[in-house]
Structure formats: structure tokens, C-alpha cells
Amino acid sequence: METRKKRRAVVNGDACVACGCCVKVCPLSAIQVRHGVRAAVDPKRCVGCGKCAKECPASVIIIQEVPV
């Protein structure tokens, strides 16, 4: 049986500068900048559309496949 996978955004927290660009473009409000330090993705809300990764000026967001 083939394992289904979903796509999710993953932030490299060590390199994130908390600019908030990803927060503005996320259609599902799945990303928040926590404590003004780094962006964090809510995996329950993220659908892996990739808008945040395209918008990130530091290129620290990637879209990964994760098992369901």
C-alpha cells in the first residue's frame, strides 16, 4: 500500500529574521512570528501551497512532503 503524503512549509528557525513577509501571504494564517524572533508554521493549518516560500526574502522556508 502506498503511503499518502502531504506538503508542509518548514522554516529554518536559525536563519529566519522574523520579517513577517510569509505571514502576510499565507492564505490560511498558518504562519506566525513568535516573540518577534522567528516564524513558526502551524502544521494543522498549513496545506503546503508554497506562497510563503516564494515570498521569503531570506529563502529560509521550504516545502516538504510529510507522511499523513
Rank of each mutant, 00 (worst) to 15 (best):
V47H: 09
G50R: 14
N12E: 14
D14R: 13
V33T: 04
C22E: 07
R8M: 13
C21G: 04
I31R: 05
C19I: 02
I61W: 04
V11A: 00
K54M: 15
D14M: 07
K6M: 10
A39E: 04
E2W: 14
V68W: 11
P43F: 05
P57V: 00
A40T: 10
V33C: 07
V11E: 07
P67Y: 08
C56G: 04
V10T: 04
R45Y: 02
C16S: 02
K51C: 13
P27F: 08
Q32A: 08
A30Y: 01
L28W: 13
V60F: 07
P27D: 02
G50C: 12
P27Q: 04
V47K: 15
V10E: 13
R38V: 12
Q32K: 15
P43G: 01
S59K: 15
A15Q: 10
V68F: 06
C19V: 02
K54P: 07
S29T: 09
C26H: 10
I61P: 06
I63V: 15
M1Y: 10
I63R: 02
G20M: 09
P27R: 05
G48P: 05
C22P: 13
I62L: 14
K54W: 11
C46A: 02
G50D: 07
V17W: 02
E2Q: 15
A40W: 12
V10Q: 15
K51L: 15
V25G: 11
R45S: 05
A30C: 04
K54A: 15
P67S: 13
V60P: 03
